[in-house]
């Protein structure tokens, strides 16, 4: 699985990076790299089977008090 994922990432890089370098779009290249790195941070642990904390929990932590305050159940 992890090899497949790396293959996918390599494929994405192969598709996107050469034209960016050719056109000297460095700003785009940096943004691309940052987002791809973010994607890797999310995807690799998932494939390896680690339990990442779900962002839902953070949203719930922020909005649950509001919800409970506005609507008593």
């Amino acid at each position: 699985m992890i090899f497949l994922l790396i293959l996918v990432f390599l494929f994405i890089i192969y598709l996107q990076v050469p034209p960016l370098v050719k056109n000297k779009m460095w700003r785009e290249l940096i943004a691309f790299a940052v987002f791809l790195w973010l994607g890797m941070v999310l995807a690799v642990p998932l494939v390896l089977g680690f339990n990442l904390p779900s962002p839902t929990k953070a949203i719930e932590a922020i909005f649950k008090p509001l919800a409970n305050w506005l609507i008593p159940s």
Partner: peptide
């Protein structure tokens, strides 16, 4: 994100964001 970062083209961001979205939708719930 392309506009916020002042990029000339948003297409390079599509595939990385697609990876993020896929992982997120798996991860969220």
């Amino acid at each position: 994100s392309a506009q916020l970062l002042g990029l000339k083209d948003y297409h390079p961001l599509i595939l990385p964001l697609a990876v993020i979205v896929t992982s997120l939708s798996y991860l969220l719930h």
